[in-house]
Design a protein around this nucleic acid. Structure first.
Ligand SMILES: [Mg+2]
Ligand SMILES: [Mg+2]
Lengths: 467, 467
DNA sequence: ATGGTGTTTATAAACATCTTG
DNA sequence: ACCAAGATGTTTATAAACACC
């Protein structure tokens, strides 16, 4: 049933079909929820939800409210439930809410929603100590892989893209630079999937991602002996694996913060909260893509997380600093049949697609979980028609995508020594027009909030109210 | 024998094994060849070859000369045979030379060197008029594809990458913008391979390339109805298909230049010849990659071309302006088996590779032909170690890759109304240390000539001497 | 000669959004 | 007006070719 784990598996911009059984939703905790119009976006309201609120009922009430005025009424809500700047992060409630929502989702045929939880459990059981149980080290004929045994025969694939994992790896190092081998080792240490079940080609993919994405650059020592991979500081959100844990679970996992390095990651992205550039005046629409719902325009960290069953984690994540785990050469001859495209007699559509074959309700189009860890994009003209006549040539002032709006990278970095986690805030975007719900991470300090659809309202002003 | 045509098929940075049978090379036409030291690069000499020279013997003589002083002597030559700014381009000689060289290469088991010629012949015979011969419109069982029949049963794949073809398409339009459909149509009209033999997935690849590469941006009309794809002018070399023809063959194919649009492409790249940024002082080495031989550092148009049998072309290339050819929906059910990876019991290396299976001499590692049409890169610190101490955090002034060195795109475009073809000059790079020969296109007007290995010598001064 | 590292290209695919019939 | 299907756009994954060390 489960689709091939090595298919693209887009991990972002996923929407969850919102299961609106709203009538039963009593306003149990909705009393403390504040709803206000979005400062600039028509038809959109900002909803502030304290941590103690019952998220499930809040969403139900909002959905009903959104429809009470028919299609003309506000149909889009930005839900903010304070999770950033969590110093007294002992409240476990938000996690419970999400789990509630998740269990509801699992009642539908959402294919691999279960297997995606597996990876976390595997990580806990594996990543500290070699614990050589029965796993032959990924050297097994791929026949007897009844992938439902739930023990831990094969760790599930983590829900992070290669780009995200590389960021986790590099940012876990106190100097924020790693050799290729160290990146391999860190990922293998923190995600046993890649040590045990992934084909050796995953290292090729790591290298491919390092080269492909501009956010990763290579530095070489003066003697030219070693070369380190780094993250361009202007676009480094300083995402780390434990940060993701914290935001999602509402707790700070007691891993690091204790030992030998400078606590609180030194310098990161922030870019300051100033609007910086006047919003390109939207032009109403005209540009598709750059998803309209989940924090539009460029790239906000649209975090979603399957998880659950997680609070005590103590393992993992500290293998980075000093050559950990002792990278084993590799397991010998395997066999995985492996014919990637698989198709056969396709044709017609120019976008190849898996022909289904797993009997799922076709309207359950969304269905897995979604993170996003793309680099920060400096906003600028999102290529909204230069509004120029169509004369033969007139390219002299077309707005371009990544022309920085500042003269030097130094301008970006002054006063950015604040801890990175301040910039991340959990949020939900609910759109009742299609009953979709997206969980997002709002980078409040990012100046690009004012964009296409969200207008110029800087949401950071709302955050203090939530504490 | 021929490897799968749908494998990556890297089309750039290819080297030709130089077949040095040099002793027989008499100085037949070498008398008019001028050899001079490269202004800045040690061990490198610039060789000026008039069009009338016998390229074969010149290369042989140079190879001998390069080795006459042993390994210490100059072992790298930059051969320039004037082909830029060709107004009186009626001389067919250079083409003959290249054919001579090519025929020599074909004596070795260079796999598909022959099939790569096929695409041009096919283009000539097909791309004007529907000419519905026996081709059922690509709707044929892939069984009887004895791909050696040389008539024209299936056009060979053109040696251009998707990125290159998209540039050709967009630049062929007088307004330098095209809708997606127009791009499809232009490519199908100019490269029948994609109309007849390519799987429908090629359109997916086109879209993928448009999105992936920053050089392509999308503009939308004010009403938001149509959206055009354009090339960011700062990086547009204005490469066109006929430009490639001209440079390679030494003749201007009599296609365009005549009819209904403004002759001589209006505004293009040039960027002026000023060094702009002081060369990053090389640091001797330390950074691998960014090929050292064929115009180092960023991305020069390393053109190589199989061709031959070409001079009369009159078809193709003018379908762009006004909805040509009438895009046929598509051919119905086909079958091509199509299991891309093919491997089987690989393992070991993290870079997957085709297991060979085509008995070729393993030392003939190069072997096909090579173009390169990457966008212009503004030179800047090529990430040569920021020479900073390894303290915990100190990213405040790392040199980054694509921070433009200018304030506004306007600075780039003033006075760039010169015809684009002035900037392209044919050249050869010969390295006797490994007997390799690379054919390159030198963009003389590009300021990045002064780079890692080629130093600051601006070669444009040599060009006039060749005429 | 081989393997590790780095760069690019090709291809398939999952989804989102927009357009059309 | 709604809906289904197709066209368009964005991103990720994977394999691969090839360069250089
Ligand atoms: Mg990179
Ligand atoms: Mg693009």
């Amino acid at each position: 049933m489960r689709r091939s784990p090595r298919r693209p598996l887009i991990l972002k911009r996923r929407k969850l079909p919102f299961h609106s059984h709203e009538p039963a939703a009593a306003p149990s905790a909705a009393r403390c929820v504040r709803i206000m119009d979005h400062p600039t976006m028509p038809g959109t309201q900002v909803v502030l939800i304290p941590k103690s609120a019952d998220l499930q009922s809040v969403i139900g009430a909002l959905s009903a409210k959104g429809k009470e005025r028919g299609p003309q009424g506000p149909n889009r809500f930005i839900l903010l439930s304070g999770a950033g700047s969590a110093d007294a992060a002992a409240d476990r409630k938000p996690l419970a809410e999400i789990k509630t929502l998740k269990s509801e989702l699992e009642r539908r045929p959402l294919n691999d929603s279960l297997t995606n939880i597996q990876w976390l459990e595997d990580m806990k059981s594996d990543c500290l100590g070699s614990s050589d149980k029965e796993n032959h080290g990924a050297g097994r004929p791929a026949a007897q892989v009844n992938k439902k045994k739930m023990s831990d025969p094969h760790p599930g694939r983590p829900p992070y893209s290669y780009m995200a994992m590389i960021q986790f790896a590099i940012n876990s190092n106190k100097r924020r630079k790693m050799t290729l081998k160290e990146i391999y080792t860190w990922i293998e240490g923190n995600f046993p999937y890649f040590r045990h079940v992934a084909k050796p080609g995953w290292k090729n993919s790591i290298r491919h991602n390092l080269s492909l994405h501009d956010m990763f650059t290579r530095e070489t020592t003066q003697d030219g002996k070693v070369s380190y991979w780094t993250i361009r500081p202007e676009v480094n959100r300083c995402l780390t694996l434990d940060q993701v844990y914290k935001v999602v679970t509402g707790t700070v996992p007691p891993w690091r913060h204790s030992g030998l390095n400078v606590k609180a990651e030194p310098d990161c992205v922030p870019i300051s909260v100033t609007p910086a550039v006047p919003p390109p005046c939207g032009r109403t629409s005209g540009s598709r893509r750059k998803q309209r719902l989940a924090l539009p325009s460029t790239k906000e960290p649209v975090l979603f997380f399957p998880n659950s069953t997680f609070s005590d984690s103590d393992a993992a994540s500290d293998v980075s600093g000093t050559e950990p785990v002792k990278h084993k050469p590799d397991s010998p001859g395997k066999d995985y049949s492996f014919k990637t495209p698989v198709k056969g007699g396709h044709l017609a559509s120019s976008t190849p697609s898996k022909p289904g074959s797993w009997g799922g309700t076709p309207l359950t189009k969304g269905g897995r979980d979604v993170p996003d860890f793309s680099p920060i994009h400096t906003p600028s003209g999102p290529s909204v028609t230069p509004s120029r006549e169509y004369a033969s040539y007139s390219f002299t002032s077309t707005p371009f995508k990544e022309l920085p709006l500042f003269g030097s990278p130094r301008d970006l970095l002054v006063g950015c020594g604040t801890p990175a986690r301040r910039s991340l805030t959990e949020g939900l975007v609910l759109d009742t027009t299609n009953d979709s719900l997206s969980k997002i991470l709002v980078d409040v300090s990012f100046s690009g909030m004012d964009y296409e659809d969200l207008g110029t309202g800087n949401l950071s002003q709302f955050i203090p109210d939530l504490l």
